[in-house]
Design a protein around this nucleic acid. Structure first.
Lengths: 337, 337
DNA sequence: GTGAAAGCGCTAACAA
DNA sequence: TTGTTAGCGCTTTCAC
């Protein structure tokens, strides 16, 4: 397994074969040359024939451009990060850019990965902060040496760019949908209170409840863990009372899933007796029984906006908020009206 | 966002500050120098003070070592790949190595990513082939330019290394466990017939059935999709008959999950009436109700063996088969005896 | 538009 | 053990 026997062909070989200078080869291959004349064709043919590909080490040593992007996520087993990673890798033109990945759940681990990516001189950095992780200090410190895009979380800095999901729009979508389906009494199992998104969603939930004149009680709406267990436990408590909601909004698909199991146990039907909506549209959502209506983060746009911000020449950090899509499935049933 | 204003300090600055030559700095910092005397300390202090970190582009241009390894997986939303990625990233010393990732589901996409990683001169390549994807030709072609480790799949080549899960051991574990719990009649929902692992597991299942003198019928044991739907449909058919198994082995947690929903619908209890075992120990398994007993791939060992093979100096490709662990949870109940 | 040549930061060969 | 120096492959002046 030692290897690297035959050195792969370099720009010099191509130049020799095409009978031009290495400078010309460089210009043709990097597109910094207008014409597509005989010389250009000869160079390309020679490169093809020798199976040439640039040595990125040499290229970036000289030009300070590494053709690589760093991505830092809390974990690949978390559905949001995993879907984002898939989408990002897909969107990147693999011939021209390479994705370097760093995984870390807490501040210290994430900071390590960021520093390490930075020392590799990535051209841009995309960061999904872990829950309750504030990376502002680290990111700000490097904000003027490369473009940084933060995905979600609470933006505390105007030195880095940010792409996030419009949480208010999410809640509007959900509540309008539930009302259209005929729901009157809605409960909300929110995420952790400390999270910025949770707070925003919670506020918007109440705004919507008032605006549609829905029924909701203080003890129906609580912050908590984003786990199956929490959904189950809270639902067992919530739905065994007489005075119970006919719709449930969950801050996470896992919570919704736990709720569905609890409802099944209690003999309540989804969606006939209770409609359920989840968040993040994990792969789970499409496979539960009944399938789960869930808020689908706009991964494609998140990725394209992030890449655009990284490629952008203007040094201006931008804050972009993207509307999600509601994936309507069986758990909110079909129209009642 | 333009940036790269101040050029970061180079080895020359460190050398000047420590009052030694750049060669000495290089040697000290790369550990190619035994002593930890005054000079070494001075160099390290200077590097620290200047917040120096090596320029990997320059380093690898000169030495052909990029301190990076490539990982190619079918998708980050698939539980096996996601867990492997998390584990691998964790195992890598982020200061010294960087993980480059390529994602592609089919042969053409995976080959693209492999070629692209190769053109970046990664020091080693770890590949998880997509289902039914044979990468032998591509991998063999590059086998002598760098160490390549294939994870799982059917090894057709002896030019590259391979780390896989001992499927026979998996099935042995499962069957022994089920017998110990008091099961007599076992059904098996296998994966796709074309997959090498499926075939091996299917054979071993029958061997174990015979060896423990268990009851099983031909129409209980079928190949099929690894989906919730398949688990549900097959179980509805299988368990509505009088003559039904008291244990079910599923080639995938999703299948097991579908089966559990079906059993619930049919009024059969897990584990009292039917014991269920899944495969791959997805995050799902620990959260179903009841929680699902599942075969846990030995991620930690897979990663450490893979890294060892990549680092190994011997050019010998090795084939390693690692025993998995059975995560015993509620779906197979507690001892009966 | 093209070629010659400098030099990015580092490591390794060689010299002391 | 240390320092001096060549040169990895490329991009980018600079001169033509």
């Amino acid at each position: 397994m030692a290897g690297k026997n035959e050195r792969s062909s370099s720009i010099t070989n191509v130049a020799a074969l095409a009978n031009v200078s290495i400078a010309t080869v460089s210009r043709v291959l990097s597109g910094k040359r207008g014409k597509n004349d005989d010389i250009a064709r000869r160079v390309r043919a020679a490169a093809e024939q020798l199976n040439y590909s640039v040595n990125y080490a040499a290229s970036s040593l000289r030009s300070d451009v590494t053709n690589s992007i760093g991505l830092v996520i809390p974990s690949a087993t978390e559905s949001f990060s995993a879907q984002l990673l898939d989408e990002l890798e897909y969107a990147i033109d693999a011939d021209a850019q390479q994705l370097l990945i760093g995984i870390g759940a807490d501040r210290s681990a994430q900071t390590d990965r960021i520093e390490s990516l930075l020392s590799r001189h990535v051209d841009g950095l995309i960061v999904v902060p872990g829950t309750e992780t504030d990376l502002t200090e680290t990111l700000d410190r490097h904000a003027d040496s490369l473009p940084i895009v933060q995905i979600g979380g609470h933006q505390q800095s105007f030195k880095t760019s940010m792409v996030s999901i419009d949480e208010s729009a999410s809640m509007e979508l959900i509540m309008r949908h539930l009302v259209e389906r005929g729901s009157h009494a809605v409960a909300y199992m929110a995420g952790k209170e400390v999270s910025f998104e949770s707070a925003e969603l919670f506020t918007m939930f109440h705004t919507q409840v008032r605006s549609y004149r829905l029924v909701s009680h203080t003890d129906w709406n609580q912050f908590g863990e984003r786990t199956v267990q929490r959904g189950y436990d809270c639902s067992m408590r919530l739905f065994s009372k007489d005075n119970r909601p006919d719709a449930l909004v969950c801050a996470d698909d896992a919570v919704a899933f736990g709720a569905m199991v609890a409802l099944h146990t209690l003999g309540l039907r989804v969606p006939e007796d209770v409609r359920i909506v989840g968040f993040d549209d994990s792969p789970l959502a499409a496979t539960t029984m009944p399938t789960l209506t869930s808020v689908h983060p706009p991964f494609e746009q998140i990725v394209s906006e992030s890449l655009r911000l990284i490629a952008s020449e203007t040094g201006m950090p931008a804050h972009i908020s993207l509307p999600p899509q509601l994936m309507i499935r069986e758990s909110t049933g079909y129209a009642k009206v």
